[in-house]
Amino acid sequence: MANINATPGESHLAHHFVDSEQQFDSSKLGMWIFLVTEVLFFGGLFVAYIVYRSWNPELFYMSAKELSTIMGAINTVVLIGSSLTIALAVRAAQLNQQANISRYLIATILLACVFLVIKYFEYTSKFAVGILPGELYTYTGIDHPGAPIFFSIYYMMTGLHGIHVIIGIGLMVYLLVKTRQGSYNAAYFTPVEITALYWHLVDLIWIFLFPLLYLIE
C-alpha cells in the first residue's frame, strides 16, 4: 500500500488531524466505543430476558416452541454470510479493487434484505394467530398467565435488531453510492471499515438472539 501520510493536500483529511493514520485510528476507536453503547443498549433487553426466564422457565420453554427454528437458522446463516461479504468489501477497498467493493456491498445489502423478508414472514404468521406484543396479544395456545411477556420481549429484541438491520442497509446504500463515485480506495476507506464494524455487531447480537429465543426446548 502506498504511503498514505506524505501525500500533500489529501482531500479526506480533516483540518484538525495531523495525518491520515490519526484520523483513521480515531474514527475506528470512536466506532468501537459506539459499539460499546450498543452492547449495553441491547444489554438492558437481555437483562429483562434473563430475569423473566429465571422467573418463568416453563413459559419460555412453551413459548419458544411457537417460533420456527428453521427460519431462525436460515436467518442466522444469512447474517453470517452478510458479515463475510462486508468483510470482503473492506478487503476489496484495502486492495484498491473498486468494482469488488460495489459487488460485495450489493451482496451484503441483498442478504440483509433476505433477512428482513424472512423476518416479515415470521412476524405475519405470528400476527395471524394473535401473537402480538403487549395487550394486543390474543393467542390462546399457550397455557400460562404470563404468556404475553415472552412475546413482548421477543418483539422488543427482534424489533430493535430489525431496526438496526434497516439502518445498516441505509448505510450500505450510501457507501455504494460513494463507491460508485470512486470515493474509497486503499488510502481512504474509513467509512467502509466502520460500517462493517457496525454490521458485524448486528450479526453478533443475532448470534445470541437466535439460541435464546428460538432454541429453548
Binding site: 468501537w32 459499539l35 449495553l40
Partner: peptide, 20 residues
Amino acid sequence: DKKINTMALLFSLLFFFLMI
C-alpha cells in the same frame, strides 16, 4: 487491531455482566 479496541469490547461485556 490495536488492543484498545478489544479492551472497549471486553469492557462492555464486563459492565453487562455486572448489570445482570
